[in-house]
Structures are given as structure tokens and as C-alpha cells.
Amino acid sequence: MAATMLNTETPAQQHTLLDQYPTVELVNVLVDDQLNAVNAVRAAAPRLAAAVAAALPRVEAGGRLIYVGAGTSGRLGVLDSVELYPTFSWPHGRAVALLAGGTDAMFVAVEGAEDDLEQGAADLRSLNITKDDVVLLIAASGGTPYVLGALRAARAAGALTIGFANNPDAPVAGEAEIGITLDTGPEVISGSTRLKAGTSQKIALNTFSSALMVRLNKVHGNLMVDLKATNAKLVLRAIRLTSFATGVDEAAARAVLEQCDFHVKTAIVALSKQTGVEQARALLEAAHGSVRQALAS
């Protein structure tokens, strides 16, 4: 009996003459199909919320976020992991990405790497997984052997496993403690999951990690107050955020930020409470990093 074709691999019926479309129509079709990625993530929102709720106590206890994937899915995991440090001051060592084929696969396809179930398990075990770790397993097909190997090793270690797949009833979602199905259906260019399947994964990962960081008190109101000012652009952003949150001018904001290594949270509390940066740090520590609670104390 022939294997059932995955939704993500099934040729789309409505664009069989895609290569003959005028360029403007071609571009419009490709863009419009991305709306299906948004709809797929929206449908999975309850599962994403459950994943955030389950991950929160683990990371509060010191656990790491560990991303596992191959090809486009793996690269999207790498992207999410590296962006957490400048955006939320999340430590590099607590956002780890495993990519089938190793770091070289970020830039060049490593043939066959995704098919190695045992390597996925070995790479995961090499991280000395604990029960507080949260492992995000990403596979458009939902059956990538490398990812499944890592998933099974993570479950054996007692870590929280969250599986992202783009096909219904996929093993990666079914075997994970929390499965998230992003049912994007056939691609306009048949089988090219770098298109809307990849877009849905990017949205889902952004949503998960951003929501988790909000729950970890790294956002005040809707302001990114725990950024790491690693370049000139982010230094200016820190000044503007502090000024906006406190009502002081940018010169006053910069003066206090320079005393606290441009940590926006500390500057907001110091300026709002009219106290020194050390007292502001103490108030934030007592409030578990919540600017709102520190200001109310």
C-alpha cells in the first residue's frame, strides 16, 4: 500500500500553471498564501497558551529553552534562540539550539543529517538535560528522525517537550507532552515548506517565546524594558523607552542609564521612585523583576 501523502507535500490544485503567471500575479499569489500561515497559528493559539503555562514554572526554576530542528525548521529555531538575548537579556546559555548537521548546516544543507535518529538523541543528551528544561521540537513534516530522536531523549530525561508540526497526527506533535499542529496545508510551490509552513513556525515560535518573556516580567506594559543595549541602536532605544515610561527628558534618562549599565528596568524604577540605582535594583529583586510591583512597593 502506498504511503499517504502529507498535506505539506501534496501538490496544490489551484495553481497548476504557476510558472505561467504574470509576475505581479505570481507575487500576489505567494503573498496571499501566507495568510494561511496566520490562520494556522491562530487555530493553534490554545495549545500555544498551554505551552507557555507549562514552560513558565520550569524556566522560573532555572531551566533552559532548547530548540531542535532540521533544515528551515532548525534554522528558525536558531533564529528564535539567538534573538532572546538582545531583546530580553535572556542568557545565551539558557537558549540553546540544536540543528541537524551542526552549525555548518545553518549556511549549507548537510545531506542526510535530518535522517539520523540516533544523532538527534545523542546531541540532546550531550546537553545534560534536566527536568526543568523546555525542549521545542520543530518539524514541518512532523516526522523528521533527528527531531524524533531528540524528542524521545528529552522525554526520557523528564524535560518538558513541545512539538511543532505542520501536518495533522504527526509523530512530533503526538509524542511531545504538548503538541502544536500548524495545519498550513499544501504549499503554492508543492513541498516547499520554507514558504507558509516556515512562516507559521516563525510566528508560533515568536509568540511562544515572547509570551513567556512577558510572564517572566521582561515587559512593562507593552514596553521592552529588559533589552540588552549591545549596539548604538539599542542604546538609543533604551533611552527612549526610559524617557517614555518615566516622562523625563532623554538627557535625564541617559544620565541614570549610564549608572546602571543601560538597564531600562532599573532606570525606570530609580527615576520613578526618585531613588538610587542600587535601591532600584533591590526593589526589582524583591519584586521578582516586575517593574510594576517594584513601583507599587
Rank of each mutant, 00 (worst) to 15 (best):
H15F: 15
R42S: 11
A294I: 01
H288F: 03
C260E: 05
G163T: 01
E25R: 12
M224S: 07
L18G: 04
L30S: 02
Q13N: 08
G63M: 11
A159E: 05
P186M: 08
K273E: 01
V256N: 02
G62P: 10
N36Q: 15
G142R: 09
V135T: 03
H288R: 14
E258H: 06
V68R: 00
G93M: 03
C260R: 08
T246F: 00
A43Q: 15
G102T: 10
A165K: 07
L283K: 05
Y67H: 11
A105T: 05
L227G: 06
L76A: 10
F107V: 12
A153C: 11
V225R: 07
H288Y: 07
A170V: 12
R125T: 12
D249N: 15
R281E: 14
E118A: 15
R155W: 00
S126D: 14
L195E: 05
V29Q: 05
H263W: 00
Y67F: 14
N36A: 07
L26R: 13
Q274E: 13
V147N: 08
D104P: 02
S192K: 11
I203H: 13
S297V: 00
L257P: 10
Q34S: 09
D116L: 15
T87N: 13
L212G: 09
A251S: 14
V248S: 04
M213Q: 14
L76S: 06
I189D: 01
P11R: 06
A154M: 01
A154Q: 06
K228C: 13
D183A: 15
A121T: 00
A294N: 08
K218F: 01
V38P: 07
G120K: 04
E111F: 07
G93C: 04
D249G: 12
A51K: 05
V188A: 13
G77P: 07
L283T: 01
N167P: 10
H220A: 12
V135R: 06
A211G: 05
E114N: 12
L284H: 06
K265A: 13
V248Y: 03
G69I: 03
H220Q: 12
A44Y: 08
T8K: 09
Q279D: 15
R94D: 12
L227H: 03
N206V: 07
A165I: 06
Q119V: 07
L148K: 09
G71C: 08
Q293V: 03
A44Q: 07
G174H: 08
D116A: 12
L65W: 06
T199H: 11
T181A: 10
G77L: 06
M106P: 01
T230D: 12
A53V: 06
A251P: 00
L216D: 03
L271A: 02
P91Q: 08
V219G: 06
L283N: 02
D80A: 13
E118F: 00
E177P: 05
F208L: 15
A113P: 12
L284P: 09
A245S: 12
H263R: 14
S210L: 12
V214W: 01
D116W: 03
M213T: 04
S290E: 08
A286E: 13
G142T: 11
L160M: 03
